[in-house]
Amino acid sequence: MENITLSFKDVSVAYNADKLAVIHISADIQKNSITSIMGPSGCGKSTLLRAVNRMHELYPNIQITGSIELNGRDILSMNPIEVRRLAGMVFQCPNPFPTMSIYDNVLSGYALNGIKIQRSERDQIVETCLHNVGLWDEVKDNLNKRGSFLSGGQQQRLCIARALALRPDILLMDEPTSALDPIATSRIEDLLVELKKEVTIVIVTHNMGQAARISDYSMFMYLGELIEYDKTEKMFTNPSDKRTEAYLVGKFG
């Protein structure tokens, strides 16, 4: 049990009463692994991911049933702000805070949570996190510049650093490289493989090559349902469901 970070138990999500966007999904996510979620557009990948850090609660009409456990604790028994600290999120479009400097962006999690830390410790966190995302050498002379001046790939890495700074148990990434060029993408892929030593990663991606390259486990979703969930090698070489196979050979999506 202790090597399971996240566990979905019969999770369903509905944006409006008559139609479920995510249908009865159950799955366990292994600790210190990368799990990719694939599936055609609109199949509910983002919806499932956003259920984990309770983002759906920002919008009043969304209904969730079932339960999700993070390190064995039911997330619904915790406060949403605690859950979100433990489950970091990186969005499809890089969204560094434009009113803050690069330095403050990395530390924004602390500022937002009202956590006071010493100057030296702050410098330490900023340097480590920017190192971890391979951004330190590029920005170390411009730490006081605004985050929005960076290139798209750099911005996305800044957002990853920002999420990592809070030392989350799990990192949820929703198509983090879809707005980036191949070079920036491969840098982030390398980074994720490095990072999985420290944090469990769940990544939504449309890029099958990416899933094959970096992920240990893969999920295939279709029309809100979890069709297949297996070791990545197994899924890519010998999928057990026809729909998975059709997707992997490019029949739809």
Binding site: N53, M55, L58, F91, N95, F97, S108, G109, N113, A163
Partner: peptide, 13 residues
């Protein structure tokens, strides 16, 4: 922008 707010909420604010 909603993305900025979501970014902040996702950090636990």
């Amino acid at each position: 922008p909603q993305e900025l707010k979501e970014g902040a909420y996702s950090l636990g604010a």
